[in-house]
């Protein structure tokens, strides 16, 4: 692989932008390793429980049913309408809150491995992404069960979930990476992120529907990027196409994230090792 030799031999003469690019490229190239590490990590987490990773689906399922019944009686809505809505929203919300929350402690947690074994920072974000997707797929199967149980018809639209998931991960990847870098430097960032997501759950239509807000407060939904990201998974599961606006906002989040990430990597990549 001539590129590897070029990379190493020109380490001190290469521009920071080239090094940033190589970091991301090498991360993607070692896909076999982060896929393996991601899978092992989920497996070990649930190794001692009787039902293994199925526990993920089980706990989410209980949560969704409990919240679903309470919310449908509070809002006087039919549970067959609200529970599939909550199930599809909750699994997507869990995907990106878990990914972004874990991202904020990622480099601190893997400091020794970064220093001594593998120094491509993108590798760790990709490993975390694998882990989040595996957990999401367990939740996805549960959500599928819930929506079938509550009489939502199965349609071909559901297959759109997979390109949607790809787009969402491409949008979240740079933001997770950015958070990992910034949290290594600013140690009060991880609790701040956790607090933002706790509040975010209530201002994002996960457990309620946008039409319940009324036209006066609809901007809470319209300007909320989380809502648009959730809609990419939720709409196909409920038998609809996602809106063009949802796709456009997610693309915007992705492009903004990658641009910011490359700026941050170019200026700060060399210093991350001193921060952890």
């Amino acid at each position: 692989m001539p590129k590897l030799i070029d990379y190493y031999s020109n380490l001190s003469t290469a521009s920071p932008l080239t090094l940033a690019w190589h970091d991301v490229l090498h991360g993607f190239r070692s896909y076999q390793t982060w896929l393996y590490m991601g899978w092992q990590s989920v497996r070990l987490q649930y190794k001692r429980s009787l039902i293994g990773p199925v526990w993920i689906s089980f706990t989410s399922g209980i949560y969704i049913l409990m919240v679903g019944y309470v919310m449908s009686s509070l809002f006087t809505m039919r549970s067959t309408e609200l529970i599939p809505w909550i199930a599809t929203g909750f699994i997507t919300w869990s995907l990106f809150t878990a990914f972004l929350n874990d991202s904020s402690t990622l480099f601190i947690q893997y400091a020794a491995m970064i220093k001594y074994t593998c120094h491509h920072y993108s590798f760790y974000t990709l490993f975390l992404m694998t882990k989040s997707i595996i957990v999401f797929l367990h939740n996805f199967l549960m959500a599928l069960g819930v929506i079938i149980f509550f009489d939502t018809p199965l349609t071909w639209h559901m297959l759109i979930v997979f390109p949607s998931l790809f787009l969402i991960m491409m949008a979240l990847l740079p933001w997770g990476f950015l958070l990992s870098i910034l949290s290594a430097r600013l140690r009060d960032l991880p609790p701040m992120i956790a607090a933002i997501f706790t509040t975010g759950l209530f201002v994002t239509p996960v457990m309620w529907k946008p039409e319940q807000l009324g036209s006066e407060y609809i901007y809470i939904v319209l300007y909320n990027p989380f809502h648009h990201i959730i809609a990419l998974i939720r709409a196909p599961l409920l038998g609809e196409f996602p809106l063009l606006l949802n796709i456009a906002v997610t693309f915007g989040v992705a492009i903004g994230g990658w641009v910011l990430l490359f700026i941050c990597l170019t200026f700060y990549r060399q210093r991350i090792a001193f921060w952890i």
């Binding site: 692989m1 590897l4 030799i5 190493y8 031999s9 380490l11 001190s12 003469t13 092992q40 990590s41 070990l44 947690q109 893997y110 400091a111 020794a112 491995m113 970064i114 220093k115 001594y116 074994t117 120094h119 060399q270 090792a273 001193f274």
Partner: peptide
Amino acid sequence: GVYQPSAGTIQRCFQHCTLLTPHSSIN
């Protein structure tokens, strides 16, 4: 290669390099 020099140059001509220490964040 984990630290970059603050000044001076380093030329590295190899593909694989390992640093072995007793510390590790392996699960």
